[in-house]
Design a protein around this nucleic acid. Structure first.
Lengths: 125, 125
DNA sequence: AATTGACTTTACGTTAACGTCAACGTAAAG
DNA sequence: CTTTACGTTGACGTTAACGTAAAGTCAATT
């Protein structure tokens, strides 16, 4: 399964410029066909999806790059593996905190929402 | 309990410029003392906290403004209440989707992390 | 053969979210 | 009374993350 740049743009509802920009920044490295056109495969698509997901949580492209290259390179040496594992744990922990934080926000909003619903009920009686 | 601008800046580890910027954009409206200095109270502090929380999830200041004014104004009329309640439900739903999305990201990272741990274990035997 | 459509690169433009600097006011401390 | 610390309002600077326009390539269609 392979995609052209506008295929991906359509799928994710972003501009081709955006995709090329991610490549400029080193976040994507698609193949090229005989005419020099970009060819994206399953793996490139997954990467793009990760990028967009990260963006939705307020991570900068720089942070996202860190996160995806973290588990992407050949880290065969033991030392390298140790660093990767330790750093990965940090990142996952940070993610967990963020999730909790977001749940707190949702709960706050739900409380407020309940209040408003009550007031509406009172009016409807 | 009241705070000066640098009190808040220190508490949240942001610059005073940032706080003034949020005021420029209408997100904060602190009192002024006799000398024209900004005075922040409990409610202002809570608002700032909400703003910063929203930022961490990649919401723009414009979106954040929407969310905080949503439950902030005097919406006494039934029509107003209905609109607020309906809109609030939408926002909460969006938040929930975002939380799920974030959990998906965390799970992906955890899977990768496990792989690396296994490879490390294999080396250590 | 000419047009259409999708792609390419290069380069300048734009906006949000601040940083930074200048010039000034005020109040407390030494 | 001067210094120090903290506040104020402009106003210009900066950076990330794209938008947009120009000029060209290539393959398929008319």
């Amino acid at each position: 399964m392979q995609y052209t740049i506008s295929d991906l743009a359509a799928q994710f509802d972003i501009s081709t410029r955006t995709i090329r920009y991610y490549e400029e920044k080193g976040l994507l490295t698609p193949e090229r066909d005989a005419q020099g056109q970009r060819l994206y495969h399953r793996k490139d698509r997954a990467r793009l999806q990760l990028i967009l997901r990260g963006k939705r949580f307020g991570f900068s492209l720089e942070e996202i790059e860190e996160m995806i290259t973290l588990f992407d390179e050949d880290r065969s040496g033991k030392k390298q593996l140790e660093v990767t594992v330790a750093y990965g744990e940090e990142k996952i922990q940070a993610l967990n905190e963020r999730i909790e934080d977001m749940e707190a926000l949702r709960n706050e909003m739900q409380e407020l929402h309940k209040d408003f619903q009550k007031r509406l009920q009172a009016l409807e009686d």
